[in-house]
Design a protein around this nucleic acid. Structure first.
Length: 357
DNA sequence: AACGCGGGGAC
DNA sequence: GTCCCAGCGTT
């Protein structure tokens, strides 16, 4: 475990800050959430940006702020509307936690986003990074906001070889950032590190020749920037196979089911899925009857679809089917007109099945 | 500390 | 194919 005191010996903090900030003021990216100081909008952007690239977030951010311009609009919205606005962005618990937290801000803090670390920390979906990001960016407090960029940049600049996949390493970088962060402009300092990590100090092939803090970088000096940061491997994922049924009733409506309120793709809607591990194709109709209480006639296979999550892979066989007897007992399944499907939040894998409807 | 949780883009 | 992205909540 690296000792933070030792790491900062002979490191010129003041010159590092000056070189970094001078570069940032001249080169900072023009991003939608940088055109406001509204803590709510900063908050929304930070939640969307968790594990998600800037280019992916931008259109979602515009749409979300247009639809929910204030904490009150979001607090008063239906959860399904919020999930629909989040559709395709992934990690859907972010959206539900954000709305939950915003409702708490309305009730407990008179609609004002809190500016105290302890208060922010208590809000659903706000962890150590997002807390620091809001405090520094929206309230200009010298708090660390340590994400993957910060760990990569500082592991190189200070030549730190601790495993960034481990929790204690993040705490090390928070301690280091507290020492190095600018107290004159903490907002710009944190965002400058992130811009640097996103555009120059990239994971592979960093463009050190253009780096504003190259002369402060110990990894560059030693020629080991490509070997840092150290990150232990993630374990490989598992595969699950399902039949997905596009069930049509006599009125031409399509059957959809809502997923459980916890776990993968919580509360989103999908076309009914039948696990295929032990169920041969012949048993699909029987499985539907015993699990959902209605009878179907299985139609032709329409195609296959492979969908890769970060931790598992779905192999989906897509079938059409006809509803024969509709005494449905499962409240999570309902039949809706085709033109109303667009009102429901679907996972991307099921959005792709629209072509077979 | 380890794991579940989406989806996309770069290579 | 692999990696990783402005991470967090739960166990």
């Amino acid at each position: 475990m690296t000792d933070p005191k030792t790491s900062l010996q002979n490191f010129n903090i003041k010159e590092f800050q000056n070189d970094l900030l001078t570069w940032y003021y001249a080169n900072k990216r023009d991003l939608p959430w940088r055109r406001t100081n509204d803590p709510y909008k900063v908050w929304v952007s930070e939640i969307m940006l968790q594990q998600t690239k800037v280019d992916t977030v931008i259109p979602y951010f515009y749409n979300f702020i247009e639809q929910f311009p204030t904490v009150y609009d979001l607090a008063n919205a239906e959860e399904q509307e919020v999930l629909k606005a989040w559709e395709g962005l992934g990690y859907y618990s972010r959206a539900r936690n954000l709305q939950h937290a915003v409702r708490e801000v309305v009730e407990r803090y008179d609609g004002k986003v809190p500016s105290k670390p302890k208060e922010l920390e208590g809000l659903k979906g706000i962890g150590s990074y997002t807390k620091g990001a809001i405090l520094s960016i929206a309230f200009n407090q010298p708090e660390p906001a340590v994400d993957g960029n910060v760990m990569r940049v500082f592991s190189r600049v200070l030549n730190i070889d601790d495993d960034i996949a481990q929790a204690k390493t993040k705490k090390l970088f928070e301690t280091l950032t507290r020492e190095v962060i600018s107290h004159e402009d903490p907002s710009s300092f944190n965002q400058a590190i992130m811009d640097l990590g996103a555009t120059i100090c990239t994971p592979k092939s960093p463009t050190c020749l253009l780096c504003p803090v190259q002369e402060h970088c110990r990894a560059f000096d030693l020629g080991v920037e490509q070997q840092l940061p150290i990150k232990s491997k993630a374990k490989k994922n598992k595969t699950q196979s399902y039949a997905v049924l596009l069930i049509e009733n006599e009125q031409g409506e399509i059957g959809i089911e809502q997923r459980p309120e916890e776990g993968l793709l919580a509360n989103l809607w999908q076309y009914p899925m039948v696990p295929l591990e032990e169920n041969s194709i012949e048993k699909i109709e029987e499985w539907i009857y015993s699990n959902h209480g209605f009878t179907i006639k299985l139609g032709k296979k329409q195609g296959e679809l492979k969908h890769v999550f970060s931790h598992l892979t779905w192999n989906l066989d897509i079938y059409t089917a006809l509803l024969i007897e509709d005494n449905i007992k499962n409240k999570n399944i309902k039949f809706v007109p085709k033109q109303e499907l667009i009102n429901y939040p679907f996972p991307v894998s099921h959005l792709r099945m629209k072509q077979y409807i």
